[in-house]
Every structure is written in C-alpha cells, then in structure tokens.
Amino acid sequence: MNKSPFRYDRGMTLIVKTVTRFTLGFILIYGIYIAMTGHESPGGGFAGGVIVALSFVHIMLAFGKEVALKRLRSNLIRLIISLGALVFLFIVIASFAGRCVPINLFFARDISCHIFNNAVIIPICEMIIVGAGLFAIFVALVLLSKSDKEFE
C-alpha cells in the first residue's frame, strides 16, 4: 500500500466519504435542474455546468485524485463531451445558415420546435461542455502541475 504514488492524497476521512456518497447525486441532479429550467427561472446552461463540475470536484476532494482521473480518462465521457460539442455546433451553424442552405432538419417553421431546441437541447450541450471544461481546468491547475511519474 505504501508504494502507491497516491499515498499522500487518498482523500478525506470516512465521514466525508459517506456524506459525499449520499449528496453527490443530489448535487448532480440540481445542476441538471438548473440547466433545464433556465428558460423559465434564473439559471441556465452555464450555471448548471458549473454545478456539475463542482460535483466532480467534490468527488476528487473526498476520494482522492485516482478516482477523479479515472473518470476523466473513460471513453464514454469523451464520447458524450464530443457529441455535446458537435450537436451544439450543428444547431447554431445550421440556424445561422438556415436561410441559404436547406438543412431545416430541426428547424420547423413553428415556434414550438424552436423552443424545444433552445430550451432543452442547447442547455444540455452547454452544461456538458461547461462542466467538463471547468473540471478539466481544475485538473490541469491542481493535479497536473506535479511531476509526470505520479500519473502512470
């Protein structure tokens, strides 16, 4: 056990770990709620994304850097982040060029489809990108500043 490179950063005490296990899902759901109801009440995709990033920071502070970095390296999360970015880019560029290019796939003429795009799809994409981006900045600033050997 003592040969582990993470021995000085293995998280906090058992109390903090147990409370984190209970509250983590609620923080995540609250971030998604803030992002989804941004059209009717204060909030929005950016604030929801920051709350999602805070839940990942919460994991890292409680359980140590090993668990958090494993989450960042998983392929599913990379796929979700890239899909969010591509869908967001497609919606914005398509609505920008919708008059000259016939890609009115999402963009029906009635306003309900437009509202669905703007109230559901774009906040979710923005939440994913902002959450992952701020957590990546946190990882880069806090964890990756040490020497390289500790991450192998």
């Binding site: 960042l72 390296r73 982040i81 967001f88 914005v92 990108i129 902002v130």
Partner: peptide, 23 residues
C-alpha cells in the same frame, strides 16, 4: 447564440488540451 457558441468552443479547447496532456 453565436456568443454562447464561442464560449463553449473555448471551454472545449480547454478539454482537448487537458486530455492531450493527461493521456
């Protein structure tokens, strides 16, 4: 909406940079 797209693009560039460094 294009401002929001620019902000998301900036954060996505940050993600790509960190994943490239931490791979």
């Amino acid at each position: 909406a294009l401002d929001t797209l620019g902000e998301a693009t900036m954060l996505f560039a940050a993600i790509i940079g960190v994943l490239a460094v931490a791979r």
